[in-house]
Design a protein around this nucleic acid. Structure first.
Lengths: 155, 155
DNA sequence: TCGCTAGTGAGACTGAGTATCACCATATGT
DNA sequence: ACATATGGTGATACTCAGTCTCACTAGCGA
């Protein structure tokens, strides 16, 4: 357990910094999130942590999202996906097919959005830019399926 | 009834063009939507049309959204709002306080998004830009509340 | 160590949206 | 105008994500 100490410590530190108690369930959730690469749903976390209550999983995710540790993206149908927020402001490439969420950044886009924001009546709190895409993987899969069905039709 | 003929005719025309049957419930929903100014939830339409079944309201809204007659925006919590799509591509100003949705357009933004889209791996299907704001009305209300609570504290 | 209280988990609840299915009304052919 | 095939409807059951409740637990400061 000594080897994993550093991750645990960082998780504990983070929870401390948020001004909340460092409990085992929160540690479990935070550690699992820290190990995630892409975007994930709250429900998937819930399923991966059968020892932690549903309510606690949702509470912890909300806590971390509100604290800016997690970043929330909305699929076209409105269902939320979370990912570790690397603190650089970014936007999302959402695959309409497999629902994976990738990040992208553009300084030029930010500058323009900032300019546009200045012209908007009222107070701008933030913005969100999503590109809906078919990711390369899904395109490849589609191509394979089409080729196969064409072969079926032809044969 | 002659005076309202033109709106009815346009609604009937539109339903015809969508290649579906022109039924009374669809007419009712479409006419109510046509009379709406801002963005609305499916549930609000359901409440305003007690004579039309819930399922039919949701079905009709989905039908019109898929046909491009309605435009769908997502609030920060992921709940959808619909508005008449005036067919010019546009984006949204979403008030985090009162949840009203306004449209905005920017040719410059579109050009940049198009450029960025060209560099994205895979196939870009579309994009969405939302500004989260406190609208002028809500800012004014907040100001009034703050002034009031300050007065309370002071008095 | 003790005790306060924030946090937890089981499960009830909620609200939005979908599926089912018997029945109905519209479009169409004659 | 009438018959009729079938797409559409509404009541309602269902699903699913997320929240609330509340008795119980455990973290943390004294």
């Amino acid at each position: 357990m000594i080897a994993s100490g550093s991750v645990d410590d960082r998780v504990d530190d983070m929870l401390h910094r948020l001004g909340c108690r460092v409990t085992q369930p929160r540690r479990d959730v935070a550690r699992l999130l820290a190990s995630k690469r892409g975007a994930f749903s709250a429900e998937s976390i819930n399923e991966e942590l059968p020892g932690v209550g549903r309510a606690t999983v949702y509470r912890t995710i909300r806590l971390l999202a509100e604290a800016g540790v997690l970043c929330k993206a909305l699929l076209p149908d409105g269902s939320p996906r979370y990912s570790i927020d690397h603190s650089w402001h970014h936007h999302h490439l959402i695959c309409s097919s497999c629902e994976t969420v990738e990040e992208f950044r553009s300084a030029e886009l930010e500058r323009l959005l900032c300019e546009l924001g200045a012209e908007i009546p009222g107070q701008v709190l933030g913005h969100q830019v999503d590109f809906y895409v078919n990711c390369p993987d899904c395109l490849q899969d589609d191509g394979a399926h089409e080729a196969r069905s064409t072969a079926d039709n032809g044969g």
